[in-house]
Simulated assay, not measured.
Amino acid sequence: MKITSVFTVLLFMVFSFVSKAQSKDALSNKKKEWIVASLLENKTEQTTILGNPTMVQSPYGNVVAFNGIDDALFLKEMPLKGLESFTVEMIFKPESNGVFEQRILQIGEITGDRMLLEIRVVDDNWYFDGFVASKGVKLALATEELLHPLEKWYHVAFVVTPNSLTTFVNGKQELHKDYTFNPIQEGQTSIGVRMNKVTWFKGAIYKIQISPEALKPNQFLRL
């Protein structure tokens, strides 16, 4: 009788462990994709619209244009929660006459642990800035030496692992640095501006995708 009871307990523990592992795997394998025009068209209680971001036509169909002054979307979503590795991709077109510092996407806390996709505008060009703050340690991957012309469509990717950060533009690696990353646990998402409503983005965005793993360039979204 005692042996049977012990066996039953062990069996229950095994099934519980497998079930939890499967649930974790299922969660970790989920990608998050935002077609930004759909966020605007199909607004829910999770979405707050600032200013007047507008739908415009593009080679990808409807996309959302941000005026660089007061247009943005805030989402009550935190797709990076608990992820040890992830890849954030975006297809967008930066436009002329915007401010120098432009925060396009922020996920996480307002000033605490967070991840941002940003650009810096220099004359008729821009350069990419991937930023992470984790446990009080901040790191930005950016250099003015890697310029790209404005008024064109681009794909950017920011790959984060437990020990490194890497940026890509149109599938080509730009910067890579060692960094000890601790998963972001709290926060939400802003598109078109930093979460504290400064440094607005001027341009259009088609799609944002978050994958719960460090992707290789051949796995990126196609531009």
Rank of each mutant, 00 (worst) to 15 (best):
V99T: 15
M1V: 05
A142F: 01
K32Q: 10
F15A: 13
I119R: 06
V63L: 02
K197P: 06
P79Q: 02
T143D: 14
E89G: 07
S164D: 04
H176V: 09
L27D: 12
D70W: 05
H176Y: 08
T189I: 15
Q209Y: 04
L50I: 08
L215G: 09
R194C: 06
N182I: 12
W34C: 08
M1G: 13
A133N: 15
S38K: 09
K177M: 10
G51A: 03
I191H: 08
R194G: 15
S5F: 02
Q106E: 11
M90D: 10
F100Q: 15
E77H: 02
I69Q: 09
K207V: 11
T166L: 00
P59L: 04
K20I: 14
N170E: 10
E144M: 03
I49N: 01
Q188G: 02
V122Y: 15
K197G: 07
A26M: 07
H176L: 09
Q209H: 00
M78A: 11
T4N: 13
I184S: 05
L75E: 07
T44W: 03
E33K: 06
L147N: 05
I3K: 14
R222E: 14
L73A: 08
S190R: 04
I210H: 00
N163D: 14
Q219G: 11
L117V: 12
K24H: 10
T167Q: 02
T8E: 06
I69D: 03
P59W: 01
V6M: 04
S5G: 02
S85E: 09
G108I: 09
N170D: 14
E174V: 07
F131E: 12
D124T: 12
L165K: 03
I104H: 00
P162H: 02
G51T: 04
S96E: 14
K172V: 15
V198H: 11
K177F: 06
L11M: 07
D124R: 11
T180L: 10
V193H: 04
F100W: 13
I35C: 01
S5Q: 06
K24R: 13
L10F: 14
G171E: 00
F15N: 15
S85C: 02
S38Q: 15
P217K: 07
L105Y: 06
A140C: 06
E118H: 07
A214C: 12
M115T: 14
V18P: 05
V6Q: 13
G108K: 06
L105I: 13
V198Y: 10
S96V: 11
G130Q: 03
Q57P: 00
L11T: 10
H148D: 15
T87K: 09
